[in-house]
Design a protein around this nucleic acid. Structure first.
Length: 847
RNA sequence: GCGGAUGUGGCGGAAUUGGUAGACGCGCUGGCCUUAGGAGCCAGUGGGUGAAAACUCGUGGGGGUUCGAGUCCCUCCAUCCGCACCA
């Protein structure tokens, strides 16, 4: 029964360590994945994974993101598209040791591993953001934004990380802690560089409509972060000092209930206001205490409201009433105007403050009660504020506006105040300008000089890049280490030629990564950042793939950059990423991998032991790629077994069938299928192969269902094992069907396991699978003459019957009723209803 | 507190439009092959009753819509994530 050839095959070992380097060398030597910028008749597609921060070696997240992106890139290419799939490194940042050396070592290791993974990258476009050839253009963009008034310097209260010894953007502070190192963030008053992202707040919101597919949660997070709220700016006047204080409120309908007024401790006028009132010392103590608090302490959940009177009052514009002013840290300087009107009856925070300091709580809103009269809510107001604001909430104690609905009153009171300049409708955003200066050495220098006579002078474009000097001590000490490089700092002013000093702060690394996807399109251009026509040919990115942790930071900054550069006429696209895919995390024992938990596993160990194809397929097979997945070594073994099984099948089929048959489908295939020229086994094999083609294609299109796509190839291979013994040693048609189906398994698996896919296809005489068009399923093999009819009685499955695919509804009912198993359930009962789903099911409802 | 997601065998997961729940893989059980195998091949595998045929229960809990619900609606619970003094 078993031939020598068969038993040989059983003992052959699938050896990825010889197969994988073989194909990698061909791809490297022939630059297979290089794509030219010269358009051709193929549609272009830009597939991009978020660029890696090179530190140590790649981790499981990298393996996952490139497994997903590479599968997509391969699939696109084989569907006749011209695919841009580049690679680079986010190589400025916070390295521990000698930055230049450690960065370049890490990049070399990343590149080496990516090559062992067989990722189909156009290596001719590779760069690191720390290379002068790249950051020259980062500086150029900075100057463009500066010219446009979108980059500016101002003194402001900023987030300071005492550990990293640098300022942080608002977005980089998480729960009052440094996003990077976890230290409690302090507030400092410093002069810093900002990008005017707030000018784009509205468009960042509006243009969500232009995106093709982005996860809802990412859009929601950005929307919340931008924090648009509509309301009114209302002017309260301090008559004693003759200063007007506008406040922002979303509740102008509650103005008649304002019984006090609060300023943030950072408000520049608090000392001026307190002066001469006797409150000076108390105010100074309070403000100093607030300044010493970390952001976290200030924002703590259960923190009791505190504050001190300023000893002054302001006039409420709706009723001319003078109300007392306070300073309290529950008011934030960075939102609105840094001052608020306080309506304790209808705002919980104001309520708590008023309760503590015995300030009047004056109700001006009431829910509609019976008979259209306002309901009595005094009981509730003894406990907490009443914050509802709907059509059925009406104003009380509000002069001429009493009786109006809360909703109408907002508009009418704003309009009334607006008529004589005491207020206006406005929109406010939580979003603040992007703080981009960093007091770090390893970053892109900000290309300006400070001249005593000329002020801030941009470095002329022709003199870019402003290169990072080599220095001895790059440990941050509160100001940029670059300040110590006196030979570099001291320059001549580009305008007056007088003595001047270079800016010593460097840029936030998020600036580097806000435009790298544009540079890829024309990465070797040393005359300009990109050629416009080339850029527009590729942009926007068709599929952007990465972790959801960048939902706000990177993705919002990149959107802002694209819009700003668009407005400057430099970029055609308005949005950078048409489709966004956020991959889930790889966990270990159900927990995030971390050094402190000691549960970190690295891809390299698995790639060395099982090969890249196994590691890549496993990470895709483990579950839907947008969900978190737990890494299990037994699962890896299972996938490895499957790949070995396919490889052995290919070897056996190759050895025991005639090589001249190649990988073509049997010639008698579709024409003679019904006439029986193909054996039953061959037909089963052909049908399964075409079923798999259809399934994998469907899973790749539209959704990233790689897990079920791989499962389909597993099913095909299982079917081939079942049929192969009958088909080997048979006639040419049978042998052809086997060769075709085995090669098809390799072809379908190629996007996920490129080395093995190429090996199997080539072994059977198909040549280079990546040059072969993606297979199309033959409808003739998908349709079947017979179906399995499910028969239900009262919705419960009672039988399954083989039926002709083209049977009529009546025939199906007849068939169903004839079944013995069905009869035992319907005998002697009245048939109420019979439902037929053609080709699928009959449900007989009896009583 | 607000917003979002998820909940299916022992485990990872499948079920694309309301129509056979559990594809595929892991694990487990049995068989074949083998000097042996933790290799390979084949078969079985949601729970309960049963010798079997079969019956019955079953997609976090409860309720509803429907001939029919993992899928739609209401409600509760659990876990995870994001935001959180934003006036």
């Amino acid at each position: 029964m078993s031939t020598p050839a068969e038993s040989d095959v059983q003992h052959l070992r699938y050896d990825p360590t010889t197969i994988e380097p073989k194909w990698q060398q061909i791809w490297r030597d022939e630059k297979t994945w290089h794509v030219s910028n010269k358009p051709d008749d193929r549609p272009s597609s830009y597939v991009l994974e978020m660029l890696p921060y090179p530190s140590g070696e790649p981790h499981m997240g990298h393996l996952k993101v490139y497994s997903v992106g590479d599968a997509l890139a391969h699939y696109r290419r084989r569907n006749g598209m011209r695919v841009l799939h580049p690679m680079g490194y986010d190589s400025f940042g916070l390295p521990a040791e000698n930055p230049r050396e450690s960065t370049e070592d890490a990049i070399a290791e990343f590149r080496r591993q990516f090559e062992t993974w067989g990722v189909s990258i156009d290596w001719d476009r590779e760069f690191g953001t720390h290379e002068p050839g790249y950051y020259r253009w980062t500086q150029w963009i900075f100057l463009k934004l500066f010219e446009a008034g979108l980059a500016y310097q101002k003194e402001a209260a900023v987030n300071w990380c005492p550990n990293d010894q640098t300022v942080l953007a608002n977005e980089q502070v998480v729960d009052g802690h440094c996003e990077r190192c976890g230290a409690a963030v302090e507030i400092k008053q410093l002069k810093q560089w900002f990008f005017k992202i707030t000018e784009y707040a509205e468009r960042l919101l509006d243009d969500f409509a232009q995106l093709e597919s982005w996860p809802d949660n990412v859009i929601t997070m950005q929307r919340n972060w931008i924090g648009r709220s509509e309301g009114a700016e209302v002017v309260f006047s301090c008559e004693e000092l003759g200063i007007d204080y506008p406040v922002f409120t979303t509740r102008p309908d509650t103005l008649f209930g304002a019984t006090f007024f609060v300023m943030a401790p950072e408000h520049p006028d608090v000392f001026k206001l307190a002066e001469g009132t006797g409150a000076e010392q108390a105010v100074r103590d309070y403000v100093n205490a607030a300044a010493r608090k970390s952001k976290e302490e200030r924002g703590a959940d259960d923190k009791e409201k505190t504050g001190v009177p300023l000893g002054r009052s302001v006039v409420n514009p709706v009723n001319g009433e003078a109300i007392p002013m306070y300073v309290s840290d529950y008011v934030l300087m960075e939102y609105g105007t840094g001052a608020i009107m306080a309506v304790p009856a209808h705002d919980q925070r104001d309520y708590e403050f008023a309760k503590k300091y015995g300030i009047e709580i004056r109700q001006v809103i009431a829910p509609a009660g019976e008979g259209g009269q306002p309901a009595d809510i005094s009981e509730q107001l003894a406990e907490q504020a009443y914050v509802s604001s709907t059509e059925s909430d009406v104003l009380v104690n509000s002069g001429d506006f009493s009786g109006k609905s809360s909703v109408d009153a907002k508009r009418e009171i704003t309009g009334w105040l607006g008529a004589d300049g005491r207020g206006k409708a406005t929109v406010n955003y939580k979003l603040r300008d992007w703080l981009v200066s960093r007091q770090r050495y390893w970053g892109c220098p900000i290309p300006v000089v400070h001249c005593d006579d000329c002020g801030i002078v941009p470095v002329p474009e022709a003199r870019l890049p402003v290169e990072l000097p080599d220095i001895d001590d790059y440990v941050p000490k509160g100001k940029s280490p670059l300040a110590a490089a006196t030979g570099w700092v001291e320059v001549h002013c580009p305008e007056c030629k007088g003595p001047a000093r270079r800016e010593t702060d460097t840029m936030d690394t998020f600036v580097d990564s806000s435009w790298y996807f544009m540079r890829y399109t024309d990465a070797r251009n040393d005359r300009e950042a990109w050629h416009r026509a080339v850029l527009n040919e590729w942009m926007p990115v068709d599929n952007y793939i990465g972790g959801v942790e960048h939902a706000i930071l990177h993705l919002m900054y990149a959107r802002f950059f694209t819009k700003a550069l668009h407005d400057l006429g430099l970029v055609g696209a308005v949005e950078p990423f048409k489709n966004l895919f956020t991959q889930g995390m790889i966990t270990r024992d159900g927990a995030k991998m971390s050094k402190s938990k000691g549960n970190v596993i690295s891809p390299s160990a698995y790639v060395e032991k099982y090969g890249a194809d196994t590691a890549r397929c496993y990470i895709l097979f483990i579950g839907p790629p947008d969900q978190d997945a737990d890494w299990a070594d037994e699962g890896v073994e299972g996938v490895h077994r499957f790949l070995a099984r396919l490889w052995r099948l290919a070897v056996e089929v190759e050895q025991r069938t005639d090589a001249s048959l190649g990988v073509a489908a049997p010639q008698s295939a579709d024409a003679d299928r019904s006439s029986g020229a193909l054996s039953d086994g061959a037909q089963a094999v052909m049908r399964k192969a075409h079923w798999a083609i259809d399934k994998v294609t469907g899973d790749m299109e539209g959704r990233f269902a790689f897990n079920t796509a791989i499962a389909a190839v597993m099913e095909l291979v299982n079917e081939l094992y079942k049929c192969k013994d009958a088909l080997l040693d048979s006639d040419d048609a049978d042998a052809s069907s086997l060769r075709f189906a085995t090669a098809t398994a390799g072809s379908l698996l190629f996007p996920f396991a490129p080395h093995l896919g190429a090996e199997v296809y080539d072994m059977l005489g198909g040549g280079r699978v990546w040059e072969v068009t993606w297979p199309a399923a033959d409808a003739a093999y998908l349709a079947s003459d017979s179906i399995t009819l499910v028969v239900q009685v009262n919705g419960k499955v009672r039988d399954k019957i083989e039926a002709a695919a083209d049977a009529s509804e009546d025939e199906l009912i007849e068939l169903a009723r004839a079944s013995e198993r069905v009869q035992s359930h319907i005998d002697g009962k009245e048939t109420v209803k019979q439902i037929v789903v053609p080709g699928k099911l009959v449900n007989i409802v009896v009583r």
